[in-house]
Design a protein around this nucleic acid. Structure first.
Lengths: 171, 171
DNA sequence: TAAGATTGACGGTTCAATCTTT
DNA sequence: AAAGATTGAACCGTCAATCTTA
C-alpha cells in the first residue's frame, strides 16, 4: 500500500512509523489549535490595549522581575531563553521607541546593561493588569483545579523529554 | 502600595485585577515554556531532516488531506486558519521552490487553485513519518492516557472560551 | 582564543492598498 | 459593492559574520 494521508495517521510501505491513535490525533490537533488561537488572541488584546507586542511585554517583565535597576543583556537573554541576536534586534527597536536605554557596563568593558525608562515603566504598569485578566479569562476561568494541575504536569513532562531526548529510535 | 511585580502576580492600587494564584502561575509559566520549546524542537528536527519548515509541512498536509487534486486558495486558508496574505506569500515561495503550482480556476475567474507537484508529493512522503515519530517521542511517549485525555479537554475548553469570550469584565 | 554584543542579509508575517471578477 | 486573491512596505526572527574586550 502507499501512503494515503500525511497528517498524523496513515500507512506506508517500509519502516512503518508508529502512527498516532485516534485519541492521540484528536489531542494533538486540539493542542495545535489552542496554541495558535490562544497566542493570537492574547497578542491581539495586548496590542489593541497598549500598543505593546507580547514580545515587548516579555522583555519588560524580565526587566522588572529582577529588582536591579540595570540588567545585563546576557542575563536577559538567559531569562527569556532568546537568542542573543534576536534580543539585540528587539532591544534596538524598543530603544528607538523610548521604552528602555542601553548603558555601558562598569564591570565589563564588553558588556551592555539595559535600563527601563519612565515610559517603559508606565507601559508595563498599564499593560500587566489587563494581560493577567486576559490570561485568567481565556485560560483559567474555563479550567477546573484538576485541569490546572494536569496542565502543569503535562508541560513539565514534555519539557523534561525535550531536555533528555535519549531513549528512542532517532539518531 | 505600588505595583511591584508585573509577571503574573503582584498588587496594585486601583481596580485590583484578579492575580494568578501560585498554582496558576506555575502552570502558566510551565505552559509557556513547553509551547516555546516544543515548537522550536519540532521545527528544528523538521528543517534538519527535510529542508521543510513547519509552515511548509502544514501547507502540504492541508493539500493532501483533501483528496481533490486541486484546492482553492480560500479553502486552504480556511483549513489552515491563516490570513489570506500570509498564505499567498507562502504559496509564492513554495511555488518558487517547485513544491506546488498555481492553476487558474475553471469555475470562478477570480479564483486560483493549487496543485502539488511530484516534488511536493515526494517532500511530504519523506517528511511525514519522521515528524510523527518526533511528535510521539516528545509529546505522547512522556504522557499517560489520562494526560492525553486531559490535554484534549483543556485545549477544547480554552478554544471554546476564545470562541465565546462573553461573560466577563472586559469591553 | 573565547565571551559579550551588534550587524546585515534573508526569509517569514502583518497591514493596508490594489486588482479583477462576480 | 463584495469576494478572491495578490502585492509592497514595514516589522520580526535566524543565521553567519563581525567587532571589541577579557
Amino acid at each position: 500500500v502507499t501512503c494515503q494521508r500525511h497528517g498524523y495517521a496513515g500507512e506506508v510501505d517500509a519502516d512503518p512509523p508508529r502512527w498516532l491513535s485516534d485519541t492521540e490525533q484528536r489531542a494533538w490537533r486540539a493542542y495545535l489549535s489552542m496554541q495558535a488561537r490562544l497566542g493570537a488572541a492574547l497578542h491581539r488584546r495586548m496590542q489593541a490595549g497598549t500598543g505593546l507586542s507580547m514580545a515587548d511585554f516579555d522583555v519588560l517583565v524580565a526587566l522588572t522581575d529582577r529588582r536591579d535597576e540595570r540588567v545585563r543583556v546576557v542575563e536577559l537573554a538567559e531569562a527569556l531563553q532568546w537568542e542573543k541576536s534576536r534580543l539585540s534586534h528587539h532591544l534596538t527597536r524598543m530603544e528607538r521607541r523610548g521604552l528602555l536605554a542601553r548603558v555601558e557596563c562598569p564591570d565589563d568593558g564588553r558588556g551592555a546593561e539595559i535600563v527601563l525608562t519612565d515610559e517603559g515603566w508606565a507601559a508595563i504598569e498599564r499593560a500587566a493588569p489587563a494581560h493577567v485578566e486576559d490570561v485568567r479569562e481565556l485560560v483559567f476561568d474555563p479550567l477546573d483545579d484538576d485541569q490546572v494541575a494536569a496542565l502543569e504536569a503535562i508541560a513539565r513532562a514534555v519539557c523534561a523529554r525535550i531536555d533528555d531526548p535519549g531513549r528512542t529510535l532517532r539518531p
